[in-house]
Simulated assay, not measured.
Amino acid sequence: MEKEELKILAQNLANPQGEKGIEIGEMMNATNISMTLESIRTLLIEDNEHILEIGPGNAGHLKSVLNLAQNLKYTGIDISETMQNEAKKLNKDFKDKADFILYEGKKLPFKDQSFDKIVTVNTVYFWEDPVDFLNEIYRVLKDSGTFVLTFGQRDFMEKLPFTAYDFTLYNNSEMEELVSKSHFKRMKTSEKEEEIKSKTGNETIQRIYTILTIKK
């Protein structure tokens, strides 16, 4: 891929737009699906809970979430209007159980302690002020709630050519330090490894990622 192509890919991974964004949203759902489902399993979702996913993309995995327990309510919030529209379209059968909300990426437009479980996968690289945003997540999470934050480790991510453009990368200790600066008090770290298809071609690569399970 040429430099300009990599920049466009990076921009659309951060904030998918238009036809190219729809295409990249589909690719993201395909390449991240096992990472996403593993993160959602880590939430230990129970009946009657309200789940918030930050940056769900096209939410092609929503059915898998709703099948985990009874009487769930799901909210997906994204900075991309393209992804919001795609998620609504793909999940129209679940509109009585799921909402998809557009926001500006800094303040979560919800009341304090609105959610039982919160998850975000591969979004932390784009947070402008990570500690402030973690505190926003803390605010809208119930006291007994669980927040799962999943990210590709720096050593792996640095090998991907598009991460040179406006990605902030973290290793485990850097991410743990970041979380410790927020209001959150407890976290558990687990590492995972999987083989995935590259976003820049057809080759397969070994992805190493971390799931942080975070509590108040």
Rank of each mutant, 00 (worst) to 15 (best):
A14E: 13
N58R: 04
W127M: 07
I54C: 00
I40H: 04
S114T: 08
M1T: 09
N135T: 04
I8Y: 03
I214N: 02
D116A: 06
G201R: 11
T82Y: 09
K7W: 00
K7H: 00
L13V: 08
L52G: 09
I24H: 04
F94A: 13
V124W: 01
S114W: 03
Q11C: 02
F167D: 00
Q113G: 12
S173W: 13
R41C: 08
I45K: 10
K95R: 14
F147C: 08
V179R: 01
F126D: 02
H50Y: 13
R186D: 10
S39I: 07
P16K: 09
S39N: 06
L9F: 00
S182W: 02
T163H: 03
K97P: 04
G145R: 06
V124F: 04
E38A: 15
E53R: 15
I79N: 09
N202K: 14
L134W: 06
L62D: 01
E176D: 08
T204V: 14
R41L: 11
G152R: 15
H183K: 10
G55F: 15
N58M: 06
Q153N: 09
T123A: 05
D78T: 12
E191R: 14
L6R: 04
Q206P: 08
A59F: 07
T150I: 04
F94P: 14
D112N: 10
F110T: 00
L37H: 05
P56C: 05
T123Y: 03
E19N: 10
L43A: 01
T82H: 09
S182P: 02
T163V: 03
I137D: 00
N29G: 09
L141V: 04
M27F: 07
R186V: 09
L169C: 01
I211M: 06
V121S: 04
E203G: 00
L160G: 07
N32D: 05
D132N: 11
T42R: 13
E38T: 15
I77W: 10
E128T: 11
M157Q: 12
E26C: 07
L6V: 03
I77C: 06
I45N: 01
V119I: 11
Q206R: 15
I33R: 13
M187G: 02
Q17P: 12
L169H: 01
N32K: 05
N67C: 07
K88N: 08
S64L: 12
K216D: 03
F133L: 09
E174F: 11
S114V: 02
E86F: 10
Q70M: 00
Y103T: 00
R139K: 10
E176I: 14
G105W: 02
S64I: 05
T204G: 10
A164T: 11
E86Q: 12
A59K: 07
K199T: 07
D166W: 05
K89V: 01
N29A: 08
E4I: 04
M27C: 07
